[in-house]
């Protein structure tokens, strides 16, 4: 698969909302299976259970039941951060309290786990972002060691890069990570309010973003992902939005949330007279908006899934872009112009 030379960005409309409170509770990440089951990784610091993986059907928003639970036993999670599907269809979850990576089936059966707390090669101190490369090696963001490690799928050390700081190739409590189809790696450098791009071996390529809330600026970026066009999506958690950058790192647009009621949310409301009236009395504009999104994912169909952390749901958008060849669009000019024909 090769990247298009350029894109006609026709639009990126809101598609639908999945889940509701008591089902998708404080989702921090999301994974969607080929049979369109939506898995939401949920985490909150409660007194009782504080983490789980919720399962919701894409078509009718049906609650398919939780898997995993809070704890430190096999298949359990305490402070889960990110979740992936591997090629075998199993879920891979990072846990920054237990300093380990856990593998479970989509039915919740324990498959395996690895990870030891520390700062040596292959050891982890609060692992957060995880991403596979084409060979199913796992890049792990090793947050409190301020580095990225590349490990085999069974946890053997391959390479690492990064030290604490704000220079190129340095990190301050990094969070998210993504690998594109060319093997390049993107890391959201949380406390430096930027995303850095590296080669597969950790050589710095470029960075995007700066501190702030303006277009293209970031306030504590969490998850990051890349699609087949090379577009870079950043969960700009502190600004309650997701930003889209093109493959060169140029800011394209932002998503602030456009939620409508999910099917389950709609059914709940129609069965409860009091909340119906209270909602009717309220200014509902804020309910559309994202609240502190901590991840963003895209699938092969151009769908963007945003776990809407503060609002107990996943907001989904649909990319609509036409790939362009070199013959269809002029080369990038050196400067902007006012002449359009």
């Amino acid at each position: 698969m090769t990247r298009p030379y350029a894109l006609l960005r026709a639009g990126f409309p809101y598609l639908k909302t999945v889940g509701m409170r008591r089902v998708v509770d404080f989702p921090v990440d999301v994974a969607v299976t080929r049979d369109m089951r939506v898995f939401a990784l949920c985490r909150f610091e409660g007194l009782a259970g504080s983490a789980k993986i919720a399962r919701v059907a894409w078509e009718d928003d049906a609650n398919l039941g939780d898997i995993s639970s809070t704890g430190s036993g096999e298949g359990q999670v305490t402070w889960p951060v990110q979740m992936l599907l591997d090629r075998g269809g199993n879920l891979v979850v990072s846990d920054e309290a237990l300093h380990r990576i856990t593998f479970i089936t989509t039915e919740g059966e324990f498959v395996g786990m690895w990870g030891a707390h520390g700062s040596g090669d292959g050891e982890l101190d609060r692992p957060s972002g995880i991403a596979f490369d084409a060979d199913e090696n796992l890049y792990v963001v090793d947050t409190m060691n301020h580095r990225v490690q590349k490990l085999t799928k069974d946890g053997r050390f391959i390479l690492k890069w990064g030290t604490f700081g704000d220079g190129p190739g340095q990190f301050d409590m990094p969070w998210g990570i993504a690998v594109d189809e060319l093997g390049d790696v993107y890391v959201s450098d949380w406390r430096n309010d930027r995303v850095q791009k590296f080669t597969a071996e950790g050589e710095f390529i470029f960075e995007l973003g700066s501190s702030g809330s303006g277009d293209g600026q970031l306030d504590r970026p969490a998850g990051v992902t890349v699609d087949g066009d090379g577009d870079i999506y950043v969960a700009d958690s502190g600004n309650d939005r997701v930003l889209l950058f093109n493959a060169d790192g140029r800011y394209v647009e932002k998503f602030i949330g456009d939620a409508t009621l999910s099917i389950s949310g709609r059914a709940y409301m129609l069965a409860n007279a009091k909340p119906l009236r209270l909602r009717d009395m309220a200014d509902i504009e804020p309910q559309k908006r994202l609240r502190s999104p901590r991840s963003v994912r895209v699938d092969g169909e151009g769908r963007m899934f945003i776990p809407d952390y503060g609002s107990f749901r996943v907001q989904v958008y649909q990319k609509d872009a036409v790939p362009l060849s070199e013959e269809e669009i002029i080369a990038m000019p050196r400067s902007p112009t006012l002449q359009v024909t």
Partner: peptide, 13 residues
């Protein structure tokens, strides 16, 4: 106070 959006289905406002 202005009526806030109710807790269900998408959390406190």
């Amino acid at each position: 106070f202005a009526q806030p959006i109710p807790l269900y289905p998408h959390g406190h406002y």
